Simulated scan of single mutants.
Amino acid sequence: MLFALMCTDKPDSLQIRLDTRPDHLAFLDSLGDALKFAGPFLGDDGKPCGSMVMVEADSKEAALAIAERDPYAKAGLFSAVEAQAWAWAVKNPEA
């Protein structure tokens, strides 16, 4: 099942994001086929203010466990992380 991991950055934490980005990208790469797509949310100023990571996992708990292993989470970047089941209905490359 697919889960959208929606992560909100803490205020004034852009430097944490920038410093941790290489480790975050390596972590995403390590997810292999479980990672469907990912990218930052942007604030009105055009700067990253959160993340959305679409992962395949067996359960919501498993998806949240993936989020907890993310170097961004370990660095304390996020104020909130939410996992929501998602159905890829349109333009699904696997359909």
Rank of each mutant, 00 (worst) to 15 (best):
Asp29Leu: 12
Ser30Tyr: 06
Ser30Gly: 11
Ser30Phe: 04
Ser30Leu: 04
Leu31Phe: 01
Gly32Cys: 05
Gly32Val: 05
Asp33Phe: 10
Asp33Gly: 10
Asp33Trp: 10
Asp33Tyr: 09
Ala34Asn: 15
Ala34Cys: 14
Ala34Val: 11
Leu35Glu: 07
Leu35Thr: 04
Leu35Tyr: 01
Leu35Gln: 05
Lys36Leu: 15
Lys36Pro: 04
Lys36Ser: 14
Phe37His: 13
Phe37Tyr: 13
Ala38Asn: 09
Gly39His: 11
Pro40Leu: 04
Phe41Pro: 07
Phe41Gln: 15
Phe41Trp: 13
Leu42Arg: 09
Leu42Asn: 06
Gly43Phe: 05
Gly43Thr: 08
Gly43Met: 08
Gly43Val: 04
Asp44Asn: 14
Asp44Cys: 06
Asp45Glu: 13
Gly46Asp: 09
Gly46Cys: 08
Lys47Met: 14
Lys47Arg: 15
Pro48Trp: 05
Pro48Ile: 00
Pro48Asp: 10
Gly50Cys: 06
Gly50His: 02
Gly50Val: 05
Ser51Arg: 07
Ser51Tyr: 02
Ser51Glu: 03
Met52Tyr: 12
Met52Leu: 15
Val53Phe: 00
Val53Lys: 01
Val53His: 03
Val53Trp: 03
Met54Asn: 06
Met54Gln: 08
Glu56Met: 09
Glu56Ala: 11
Ala57Gln: 02
Asp58His: 12
Asp58Cys: 09
Ser59Ile: 06
Ser59Leu: 04
Ser59Gly: 10
Lys60His: 12
Lys60Gln: 13
Glu61Asp: 14
Glu61Met: 07
Ala62Met: 01
Ala62Pro: 00
Ala62Phe: 01
Ala62Cys: 05
Ala63Pro: 01
Ala63Ile: 01
Ala63Ser: 04
Ala63Cys: 01
Leu64Phe: 00
Leu64Ser: 09
Leu64Pro: 03
Leu64Ala: 07
Ala65Pro: 05
Ala65Asn: 10
Ala65Thr: 06
Ile66Lys: 02
Ile66Gly: 00
Ile66Glu: 01
Ala67Ile: 01
Glu68Phe: 09
Glu68Gln: 13
Glu68Leu: 11
Arg69Met: 11
Arg69Pro: 03
Asp70Leu: 02
Asp70Thr: 06
Asp70Ile: 02
Asp70Pro: 00
Asp70Met: 03
Asp70Trp: 02
Pro71Cys: 08
Pro71Trp: 11
Pro71Val: 06
Tyr72Leu: 09
Tyr72Ala: 09
Tyr72Trp: 10
Tyr72Phe: 13
Tyr72Thr: 07
Ala73Gln: 12
Lys74Tyr: 00
Lys74Gly: 02
Lys74Ala: 06
Lys74Ser: 01
Ala75Glu: 05
Gly76Val: 06
Gly76Tyr: 04
Leu77Tyr: 01
Leu77Lys: 07
Phe78Met: 01
Phe78Arg: 03
Phe78Thr: 04
Phe78Trp: 09
Ser79Met: 11
Ser79Pro: 02
Ser79Asn: 10
Ser79Ile: 07
Ser79Glu: 15
Ser79Cys: 10
Ala80Asn: 14
Val81Lys: 03
Val81Tyr: 00
